[in-house]
C-alpha cells in the first residue's frame, strides 16, 4: 500500500472507493466531512489525497495516490472538505455527501486499523459492513415477509448468505438489511430482489473484496 498510514491513507482510499460504489453513479459534487482523528491529522497523513483517490476509483497501492487531486479533477469530481464533531462517532470516521441534481446520499464509514474499514451508515441508517465480501443492502418497510422474500430470491439464484443483519427505526417503520454473500450478485439477481416484495424501496449491491 501507499503510506504513510494504513488507517488514514490506505484505509481512506478503500473507504472512499466503497462509498463511491454505494453511490453507484459517477461521482460529481461531493462533500467530505472528516471526524475525530481524520479531522485532526488529515493533512500529515495525506488523507485528503487518499479519499479523492478512492472516489476516483484508484486502489490503495496505485502509484497515482499521491497525485489524487489531479486524478479527481480529470474525473470531473468536485469536492469540498469539512470537519465535524459528532458525539459517539467512531474516532476515525468520515461522512460523504454525494450530490446529483436533487438527489443526495449520505454514506458514513470508519477506518478501523491496518487498512481495514467499516461502512457504518447510509442516509442515517446504521449497520456494519466490512466490504470484504460482496453484499446486498436493502431499504424496506418493517412488514412481515420482506426478509423471507429476499432470502428466498437469493436462494433461488444459488446465492449463499454469509452473514445477515437487520435494523429498523421502529416497529412498522423503515428498515435496512445487509446480506453479505459468498459471491457477487449478478444484476439480474439484484433486480429480482428489488421486485420480490412491495415493501422494498431500494436495493444496493456491493462487489466487495477490492482494495486489499
Amino acid at each position: 500500500m501507499t503510506g504513510p498510514s494504513s488507517s488514514h491513507t490506505a484505509g481512506a482510499v478503500k473507504l472512499a472507493r466503497l462509498a463511491a460504489s454505494v453511490w453507484n453513479r459517477p461521482v460529481g459534487k461531493v462533500e467530505i466531512h472528516l471526524r475525530g482523528s481524520f479531522a485532526a491529522t488529515w493533512w500529515g497523513h495525506g488523507t485528503d489525497r487518499a479519499l479523492l483517490a478512492g472516489l476516483a476509483g484508484l486502489l490503495p497501492d496505485d502509484p497515482r495516490v499521491p497525485d489524487a487531486y489531479e486524478e479527481a479533477g480529470k474525473g470531473n469530481i468536485q469536492w469540498s472538505f469539512y470537519t465535524e464533531d459528532i458525539d459517539g462517532a467512531h474516532p476515525n470516521s468520515v461522512r460523504f455527501r454525494f450530490h446529483e441534481d436533487e438527489k443526495v446520499m449520505d454514506v458514513e464509514g470508519a477506518s478501523v486499523g491496518g487498512g481495514a474499514i467499516r461502512l457504518i451508515s447510509i442516509d442515517g441508517f446504521r449497520f456494519d459492513l466490512t466490504g470484504e465480501l460482496p453484499s446486498i443492502i436493502t431499504f424496506h418497510s418493517d412488514t412481515p415477509g420482506v426478509v423471507a422474500a429476499i432470502a428466498g430470491t437469493l436462494a433461488s439464484r444459488g446465492l449463499n448468505i454469509a452473514t445477515l443483519s437487520l435494523h429498523r427505526q421502529g416497529r412498522g417503520r423503515d428498515a435496512v438489511m445487509v446480506a453479505e454473500l459468498d459471491e457477487p450478485a449478478p444484476e439480474a439477481a439484484v433486480q429480482a430482489v428489488r421486485s420480490c416484495h412491495q415493501g422494498i424501496h431500494r436495493v444496493l449491491a456491493i462487489d466487495g473484496g477490492d482494495g486489499r
Binding site: 501507499t2 503510506g3 504513510p4 494504513s6 491513507t9 486499523g113 487498512g115
Partner: peptide
C-alpha cells in the same frame, strides 16, 4: 508516501 507493506499498519 513510498510503497510499503503494512505490518500490521503503515
Amino acid at each position: 508516501m513510498g510503497r510499503i507493506v503494512a505490518a500490521p499498519t503503515a
